[in-house]
Write a protein that binds this DNA or RNA. Structure first.
Lengths: 193, 193
DNA sequence: TTATTTTTGAAACGATCATTTCATTTATAA
DNA sequence: TTATAAATGAAATGATCGTTTCAAAAATAA
């Protein structure tokens, strides 16, 4: 019966992600999205409902890609040290490859919209919970393996690492010196040992 | 000859700061600024030139207030430990009092505009240099006083602290638990000793 | 082929965007 | 008081905002 959706939803989301990432939510116009996605204005509204709704899908899409990268790296690591280093390594690469200094889409959105859009706020809360749970998992394993010390509860170290990642990502917007970033990471992780 | 500027420029900047802080640069309209400052549209353009120009003045204003707070705290501290703790303490209070989760005006702006506005980018570079210089100063003193270790150069520790502050400020948008934040700060500073 | 359902294109919606214009008001210096 | 120059108010600028509308095109199932 129906004419089926012709465009590839992931491709469209990828294009939309690039625009939102570059210009931010408020800096992106619907015309920008029409131009970037090669979709008709009506098709966007048919498929995504509104600009905010499309952005929320973009966020989830971006998050799931990140999540997959994490899972892949974590699966490859033999112990907690490798795991945590793999994660920071991933961010350092992200920073160095971010030539136009866009920063992190999620962090940018957190600072732009958390206090304005309830749906964004709850996305950020879930994101934070998820990140901290993952980090706490790694720390707990490291502590059980006696690789990490027990000076702090795993949950506290997880919050510390979560905070450090956000700091690293913000710092990396202007400082892309790999030595600096690796040194910074070493300093952050030192407290665990 | 001339009629002199009647409004108080600092008061106007303060009002404008509140709006930009709450809504971000792209989220703030000239109408918002007219409403908030009780200034006429023409007067704003006469006195500030453009929205971007007014925002740049707002940033400087905000920065100078912060700078004064820093100087005051630093003058009151007897050694490097007290100095660095005073700074983190200042941010923790800032976070806890930020009831509507606006975050830090400068950090928000860094993530929103660094890749879009050259004038903002250079402001952020200067801001980073200034912050790191201040932190390096404290670390150097702490190292000379043998309070801090010498495992890393003062400049590297300064970058680490700068990064940690940004992380703390971003984390504080959603997590306002004072125990968590103090614990986080302790963990950050532990590496110095 | 035909009926059905969705996508598409183009135009239009009213609202709002940052900025400009200009005549009027206001306050100063002479 | 009078000449001068800036501040002010109100309206208008053209562009762009997010969103809606609707007839035409397209693709499927029968």
């Amino acid at each position: 019966m129906p004419k089926v959706e012709t465009f590839n939803r992931n491709t469209v989301l990828q294009k939309a992600t690039e625009v939102f990432h570059k210009k931010g939510y408020n800096g992106t116009s619907m015309q920008d999205l029409v131009d970037a996605t090669d979709l008709n204005r009506s098709s966007i509204y048919n498929s995504f409902g509104s600009k905010l709704n499309m952005f929320l899908e973009v966020l989830s899409h971006y998050q799931s890609i990140y999540g997959n990268n994490f899972s892949q790296k974590l699966a490859q690591s033999y112990n907690a040290t490798e795991a945590i280093e793999a994660i920071f390594d991933l961010y350092i690469h992200e920073i160095i490859n971010d030539n136009d200094r866009k920063g992190c889409l999620v962090i940018n959105c957190k600072s732009e919209m958390t206090n304005q859009e309830p749906l964004i706020k709850s996305f950020m809360e879930k994101n934070q919970d998820r990140m901290i749970a993952m980090l706490e998992d790694i720390v707990t394993k490291g502590q059980m393996e006696k690789i990490f010390n027990q000076n702090q509860a795993a949950s506290q170290y997880a919050l510390y690492l979560f905070s450090s990642i956000q700091g690293l990502r913000m710092t990396g917007i202007l400082n892309k010196n790999e030595n600096d970033l690796r040194n910074l990471t070493r300093t952050v992780l030192k407290v665990l040992y």
